[in-house]
Amino acid sequence: MGDLLGVAVLGAGHMGADHIRRLGHVVSGARVAAVADPDVERAKEAVAGLSGVSVHTDPSAALDAPGVAAVLVASPGPAHEEALLACFARGLPVLCEKPMVPDSAGALRVVEAEARLGRRLAQIGFMRRYDAGYRRLKALLDGGSLGRPLILHCTHRNVSSPGHFTSAMLINSSVSHEIDAARWLLGQELTAVRVLRPRSSSGAPEGLVDPQFVLFETERGALVDVEVFVNCGFGYQVRCEAVGEAGSARIGDEHTMVVTTGGRAAQEVAQDYLVRFADAYDREVQAWVDATRRGRVTGPGVWDGYAASVVAEAGVRSLETGHRVAVDLAPRPDAG
């Protein structure tokens, strides 16, 4: 196993366990060398069937474990800043799930810390950039055949939300993906946000503002609207339509299995983001492994993680106040 990239995975929950499976059985060129999670039994269950993996409760112990040459951070968001700074201190390349850091002040500290290194070490897990539909839409927009982009219409629906989900998390957890996707697709920063609150669905837990309608402005005059509805009850749906001066294009309507029986046809609807974006996660991690083995870092970086945190914070303020809130980004470090 000496020629494989040894990866320490921090976090063995829903996302972390899926990445452990991916590194162990799907992507090439890497192996799981260590796992850290406060729940030892959960970590052991996640690595069952994999050989040569050490299990720890302390993330630092996993980073320092024999054979570790890179890190995948899939722990809860509040733990990300400490993990990223620990990776930087050790010179370890790291793929960090979003949110990079939930608060913008902490995210900026990460940006500044990497800038002081004078080189990139971190890739942030905005996996939609690796989704086939999003990549086709990006190529179409960059090619100019739709003309100047005017509007992005986005839909983000979940079957149900976890018990700990708050109204703010619809913005800083769910819509954070649309924030990054919009910045990437349009090649523009988002400059202002307003969150509208329709009457909450009867299927939403008491006190949760769900759905929400989010409207972003961009630096070159485009608009991005997002319907986020995390207790829709019927499936996981992500769609995006770009409207330009010369045409439009929509992604997210791809068919899965269609079953025809008893005089009716029914189409499957994905129930989970790990199903809807399974291929995107596979491509993202494979690209990270390939680049890391070549001594490179590609994909979305710490500035993208910081920008998403700032925009999300502005969105939460708008949710709370009902007002349009401007987005105020710090100056970008030269090496950020």
Rank of each mutant, 00 (worst) to 15 (best):
V7N: 06
R294G: 02
M100Q: 13
D225A: 09
A242P: 00
R157L: 15
A89V: 10
A181C: 04
D180M: 02
G49A: 01
G144H: 07
D272E: 14
A291M: 08
A36I: 12
H19V: 06
G187C: 09
R183A: 12
A36M: 09
L152I: 08
E219N: 05
C87T: 12
V110H: 06
L319K: 09
E219P: 03
L208Y: 11
T155G: 03
V55G: 10
G207N: 09
Q123G: 04
R22I: 05
S309V: 05
G295C: 02
E320H: 05
S309A: 15
G299W: 05
T321W: 04
R220Q: 14
E313H: 03
V285Q: 07
R128E: 11
L140S: 11
E245C: 01
V40M: 13
D328F: 00
L170N: 15
P300N: 08
E178V: 10
R293V: 04
R199G: 08
V289T: 06
V243C: 02
A105E: 12
R135D: 02
K98C: 07
L319H: 11
A105H: 01
L95A: 12
A12C: 11
S145D: 13
G52W: 00
R128G: 07
F234D: 14
V302G: 04
G252L: 09
S75M: 11
D272F: 05
T191L: 05
R21H: 14
N158F: 12
R199K: 13
P93L: 03
F88I: 14
E227S: 11
L319Q: 10
G235T: 10
A335W: 08
L137M: 15
A48G: 15
I179A: 06
A242C: 00
G52A: 01
E313K: 05
V289H: 05
E227M: 13
A65T: 09
R109I: 01
V269A: 10
V55F: 11
W288F: 15
A192N: 02
V327H: 00
R194T: 15
H177E: 10
V175R: 03
Q188E: 15
L85P: 01
A330N: 01
E268Y: 13
V209C: 05
M257P: 00
L50C: 01
Q212P: 12
T218L: 06
E268H: 14
D328C: 02
A335N: 13
V209P: 02
V111N: 01
L121E: 11
D64L: 08
H25K: 14
F216R: 07
G295V: 00
P102Y: 11
R250A: 14
E41Y: 00
G299Y: 04
L141W: 04
D290V: 08
H164A: 14
G29H: 09
A266C: 08
S28H: 13
R197I: 02
D253C: 06
T292M: 05
E268Q: 12
S200Y: 02
E241Q: 12
F126M: 14
W184S: 13
A280T: 09
R294V: 01
E206N: 03
Y281I: 03
Q123S: 15
F88S: 07
P66W: 12
E241R: 15
A46G: 11
G106D: 00
V101L: 04
Q286R: 07
L72K: 05
G16H: 03
A132T: 14
A242M: 00
E189G: 12
